[in-house]
Design a protein around this nucleic acid. Structure first.
Lengths: 204, 204
DNA sequence: GAAATTAGATACACGACTGTAGCTTACGAG
DNA sequence: CTCGTAAGCTACAGTCGTGTATCTAATTTC
């Protein structure tokens, strides 16, 4: 009831971090459309004037926050386990998607106004600028080792996992469970690679 | 400079249609967050007072517009042509998605604030309330006729087409071409059904 | 410790959107 | 033709966000 004694005045990095967190939370909650300096300032408990000293408008703050976000972790294919690595890479995607940065990016990518400037800035840094990031890292790895026909790894196939995870999150509002991720891998990705399709299906 | 002669005063259905069109355009352009009575009124060329006589806030107008939208066309499986019917059903989805109503729905479904009340209203009418709507109608049809093992038609598999189309639209901002739809069917959906996977692949 | 920074607290005029109220006038019904 | 309904037109006070301008006081730097 009294952390008003150690009332310290935040400066530099500490303050900026607080602001970055505030924008990400704010945009995930109210959307890009309702993002305001006022709202950010309130959430970060700092006056608007402090914001204007550094940024000229809310989207600048948002962009800056995203640029200072840790880039997403990359899946690192390990043992000779395509199925396991695919599931892990999707789990990585889900974890990122539910993080503040992930939720912010989702909101931005689907905002009809924000698209132009932002998407580009996002692509450059938040997503490592290589091709797809989650399953395709894994898929390329195993394609190179001949675990499935390389010509199967088309752009469409590389998107299947992410597309299904995304759709499920839009539909239900919650991230897929591990069981659902397994279903995606077993029922959609692996068959598209020509693997595990006909035979070992769910033991049914 | 003189279509001010036939200045007619719109009434009833004509006026309401104009307003419905206006909301849909407006929301697709500015997003749910920036939807205002003022903006709707401006676009429909009617004073705000007229809007307030019928609706209490912008989202009410939007909901009403969506309820008066024609429900999406249903794919009707025709000849014995699974592949062709799948492609047609996805084309139907794309057509709907680029329509004013489709664009509005997309914006609403991905808006962090609109989700609760709206999604439900949407599900009830805009989407025919049966399960999936586009590919799954087709898939059920052919599953019942034994064209592929019925147990393959899992929720995940029923979502593959729509998920990939959605992802492509988010990524590129434009709807997929027919060639891309074919690729989705050939490389993702059919293999997941256990069809056309190993053999007839792209003639490669 | 003194000086330079810079966060924090006002305050303000401006603009946009909100609801509401009131009038005027086109339109449709009888 | 007359009358009732409802569209179209202001106008207005209230709220919220915007930028900017001061002023203060806490922290860092030397």
């Amino acid at each position: 009831m009294d952390d008003q004694g150690p009332r310290t005045r935040r400066r530099g990095a500490e303050l900026i971090n607080a602001i970055h967190n505030a924008v990400l939370e704010e945009v995930a909650e109210v959307g890009v459309g309702r993002l305001t300096m006022d709202g950010i300032g309130r959430r970060a408990a700092t006056p608007r004037t402090t914001l204007y000293r550094r940024w000229s408008d809310p989207t600048e703050v948002l962009l800056d926050a995203l640029l200072h976000t840790h880039p997403m972790e990359e899946p690192t294919p390990g043992a000779d386990d395509l199925r396991g690595d695919l599931i892990r890479s999707l789990r990585l995607m889900v974890e990122w998607a539910v993080s503040p940065a992930g939720r912010a990016v989702a909101v931005i990518l689907t905002d009809p106004q924000a698209a132009p400037q932002m998407s580009q800035a996002l692509a450059e840094r938040v997503f490592a600028k290589r091709g797809g990031t989650f399953t395709s890292t894994v898929l390329r790895h195993y394609a190179e080792r001949g675990r499935f026909p390389a010509e199967r790894l088309t752009p469409v196939v590389a998107d299947i996992g992410e597309a299904l995870v995304t759709k499920r999150m839009i539909d239900t509002g919650t991230p897929p469970t591990d069981a659902e991720l397994e279903a995606i891998v077993d029922q959609a990705i692996l068959p598209a690679l020509g693997l595990g399709a006909g035979e070992s299906f769910m033991g049914g």
